[in-house]
Write a protein that binds this DNA or RNA. Structure first.
Length: 493
RNA sequence: GGCGCAUUCGUCUAGCGGUUAGGACACCGCCCUCUCAAGGCGGAAACGGGGGUUCGACUCCCCCAUGCGCUACCA
């Protein structure tokens, strides 16, 4: 039987990094086994459903490159793939359970349930639906139940959990897990608004969609026994289960917005590469070889093994993501990077440049930043003349002869041909040698004048990319406007 | 409180009875060098505690501690 897995988010907000990893592991597993990767939307809670969340999740997954085989946006043989469109099916299945005595009606109001829990809290016992003291098919005469239902009294359908037995299942990642049925609540299956709860919808859909492996977060372990009981009641073969360890904040708490960015689109906005994000997230809880860190999606697919996924929760370390993204920045083809950089520059209001120029700038600066947008901030001077200058840097390398040298440097630049880094370096080396100075005597002032900053790529390489015309222009402007003004304001000591 | 899951450097991890406990990020030092990076070399840094099993435990079992999750007509 071919593998079929699903990613089943509830549309309550943005896809966060934990959800991304769950989706990725499902995807890797499916692709590794040549199976199907299915998207199913679990919108059975009317209250919490956020408009637009489905499109947002799909778009985000599309951005990272995880393609589904079936889903609400592409269809498939077992749709619809949105649970709110399958209500009749759940209702029928709940009815079936009722007929088999595996489920029952209950009429308790929220207030009555709250009072029950309060009593249990005071008595110091575990809060759990008390089948024998509440208003339901166990405590009410059959005619009464029929009458209430006929009258349209709000009712739910609950799972009749067996009283005394062990419920067990084998988790691919964790091994055998056993829970006693007395610790399992008589879970609501069908709510009074006619919607199913997660538990019912999940089991019914996984069955009818022929899901073979349920790969989901660790927070579902406690409810898996309920699901097992449901499969038994229906007489269905349960799928295999694999519960993934949680992703944590640096303070070991469950991943949350409070501790910084967790939404995938936050990372996207900050200019992280989808490849890097996927690579990073893949290694949180699993690793293919332990002797390297960088893997393509294809390699991840080839190596992926569910049983080798770690059991312990992992902390998301932004610094490693930054490092990894930087690795991609240095390896990705310049054509691609230039294409990605173009809209960023446009958004920042810089003039348009041909892709060839962008590629040269990226090649020049990519080793000095972690993310592509930083090329535009760190290297702003490659797109527009410096707007501010690090005068402390300038002063540190000041000497009285400097203005004269710079005047002569204009001439030197004009006569340099070809305008290449190596040629420039050689000519400036001679230039300073003739004056009995080290190269740095001219390098630092030039850097300040051309870039405004004290840090950056090799200055001769920078000059080459900037071009003769631009270099001379900046140098002249500096000599004629900036330097006199600066000297007047703060004369050198 | 009850139930469940987990526990190797600060972090991500390798290890699957016998290893100087390996790699990566971050950190520190040195080298390279026109600055900053990148890169190279080196360093510091871990098996939560206690019992067993065994000739021998990071590896297997039990207990404890700690952390986390669940405990809804939420998923």
């Amino acid at each position: 039987m071919s593998v079929r897995v699903r990613f089943a988010p509830s549309p309550t907000g943005f896809l966060h990094i934990g959800g991304l990893r769950t989706a990725l592991y499902n995807f890797l597993f499916a692709r590794h086994h040549g199976g199907s990767f299915i998207l199913r939307i679990e919108d059975t809670d009317q209250e919490r459903t956020v408009p637009g969340a489905v499109d947002n999740i799909i778009e985000t997954l599309r951005w990272v490159g995880l393609e589904f085989d079936e889903g609400p946006h592409i269809g498939g043989p077992y749709g619809p793939y949105i649970q709110s469109q399958r209500l009749e099916l759940y209702r029928q299945q709940a009815q079936l359970l009722l007929e088999r005595g595996a489920a029952y009606h209950a009429f308790d109001t929220p207030e009555e349930l709250e009072r029950m829990r309060e009593r249990q809290r005071r008595a110091g016992i575990a809060p759990k639906y008390d089948r024998f003291s509440m208003r339901n098919s166990f405590t009410l005469p059959a005619e009464e139940v029929q009458r209430l239902l006929a009258e349209g009294m709000p009712a739910v359908i609950r799972l009749a959990v067996p009283l005394d037995r062990e419920v067990r299942f084998t988790d691919i990642i964790r091994g055998e897990i056993t829970v006693h049925s007395r610790d399992i609540d008589d879970q609501v299956l069908l709510k009074s608004d006619g919607f199913p709860t997660y538990h019912l919808a999940n089991v019914v859909d996984d069955h009818f969609m022929h899901i073979t492996h349920v790969i989901r977060g660790e927070e579902w372990i406690p409810s898996t026994p309920k699901h097992i009981l449901l499969y038994e009641a229906f007489g269905w073969e349960p799928p295999q289960f694999a519960h993934l360890p949680l992703l944590l904040n640096p303070d070991r708490t469950k991943l949350s917005k409070r501790h910084g960015d967790v939404a995938v689109e936050d990372f996207r906005r900050q200019g992280y590469f989808p490849e890097a994000l996927l690579n990073f997230v893949a290694l949180l809880g699993w690793n293919p070889t332990a002797d390297r860190e960088l893997f393509t999606l294809e390699e991840l697919i080839a190596h992926f093994e569910l049983s080798k996924v770690n059991r312990a929760a992992a902390i998301v370390d932004r610094r490693k993501l930054d490092w990894m993204n930087a690795q991609y920045l240095r390896q990705l083809p310049l054509e691609r990077l230039a294409r990605d950089l173009e809209p960023i520059l446009r958004q920042m209001g810089y003039p348009e440049y041909p892709p060839e120029y962008l590629m040269r700038v990226i090649a020049l600066l990519r080793e000095r930043v972690d993310r592509l947008p930083e090329i535009a901030t760190f290297g702003d001077y490659m797109f527009v003349p410096p707007r501010q200058y690090d005068w402390d840097y300038f002063r540190a390398h000041w000497r009285p002869e400097l203005p004269q040298w710079l005047e002569e440097a204009v001439e030197l630049l004009q006569t340099t041909e070809p305008f290449h880094a190596a040629v420039l370096q050689e000519r400036f080396r001679q230039f300073v040698a003739e004056r009995g100075q080290p190269l740095r005597a001219i390098v630092h002032p030039l850097r300040l004048i051309l870039t405004g900053k004290s840090v950056g790529a090799g200055i001769f390489e920078t000059m080459e990319v900037l071009g003769k015309r631009e270099c001379i222009q900046r140098l002249r402007h500096f000599l004629q406007e900036l330097l006199p003004a600066h000297l007047e304001q703060s004369p050198p000591a």
